[in-house]
Simulated scan of single mutants.
Amino acid sequence: MGKLVGFELNSQDPKKAASFYSTVFGWEISEPHWDYQTVTTTKDQQSGINGGIAKGPHDYPHGIRLQLEVDSIEEAITKATANGALVVRDKMEFEEFYLAYIVDPVGLGLGLIERK
């Protein structure tokens, strides 16, 4: 099952977005790392979801991508593409997880996360 584990706000002006969400909603936003800033909306994982703010890449310059944790990125991509999704970024490896990006059949962006 794809468990919702986070979000990514994509903007062409991530500093402005970070300032807005920090000021208006009190989110804690880290310093940029790889053009990505982690966002803490709550310290209690039971009552909220944390995420990040990034400079939107060419494949998704504006908008919000939900991050879904899956058991297997390959299996999720196979099912997603069979049902009309497009892969916009193949499986990438990070220190603690793998990540891929897809766009669903109606144009919504999703990040697929597979924990190591």
Results as ranks from 00 to 15, higher is better:
1 M>Y: 05
2 G>V: 03
2 G>S: 14
2 G>P: 14
3 K>V: 15
3 K>I: 11
4 L>R: 01
5 V>E: 09
5 V>N: 08
7 F>I: 04
7 F>R: 04
7 F>T: 06
8 E>T: 14
8 E>V: 13
9 L>P: 00
11 S>L: 09
12 Q>P: 01
12 Q>H: 07
14 P>E: 04
15 K>G: 01
15 K>L: 03
16 K>I: 09
17 A>M: 15
17 A>Y: 03
17 A>H: 01
19 S>R: 09
19 S>I: 05
19 S>T: 09
22 S>V: 02
22 S>T: 14
23 T>N: 13
23 T>G: 10
25 F>H: 05
26 G>E: 13
27 W>K: 01
28 E>D: 13
29 I>K: 00
31 E>K: 10
33 H>A: 08
34 W>G: 01
34 W>Q: 10
36 Y>V: 03
37 Q>T: 03
38 T>N: 05
38 T>R: 07
39 V>C: 05
42 T>D: 15
42 T>L: 06
44 D>I: 02
46 Q>E: 11
46 Q>V: 06
47 S>L: 12
47 S>Q: 14
48 G>E: 10
50 N>R: 06
51 G>I: 05
52 G>V: 06
53 I>D: 00
55 K>L: 04
56 G>A: 02
58 H>Y: 05
58 H>F: 12
59 D>N: 14
60 Y>I: 03
61 P>D: 02
61 P>W: 01
62 H>I: 06
62 H>Y: 12
63 G>V: 04
66 L>R: 01
66 L>N: 02
70 V>I: 08
72 S>K: 08
72 S>D: 06
73 I>R: 13
74 E>L: 11
75 E>H: 13
76 A>L: 04
79 K>P: 00
79 K>Q: 10
80 A>R: 04
81 T>R: 14
82 A>F: 00
82 A>M: 01
82 A>Y: 00
83 N>E: 03
86 L>P: 00
87 V>N: 06
87 V>E: 01
87 V>L: 10
88 V>P: 02
89 R>C: 08
90 D>I: 14
92 M>T: 15
95 E>H: 14
98 Y>M: 08
98 Y>H: 15
99 L>F: 15
103 V>M: 05
103 V>H: 09
104 D>Y: 09
104 D>E: 03
105 P>T: 07
106 V>E: 13
107 G>T: 08
108 L>K: 06
108 L>D: 00
109 G>D: 00
109 G>P: 02
111 G>D: 06
112 L>T: 10
112 L>Q: 09
115 R>G: 07
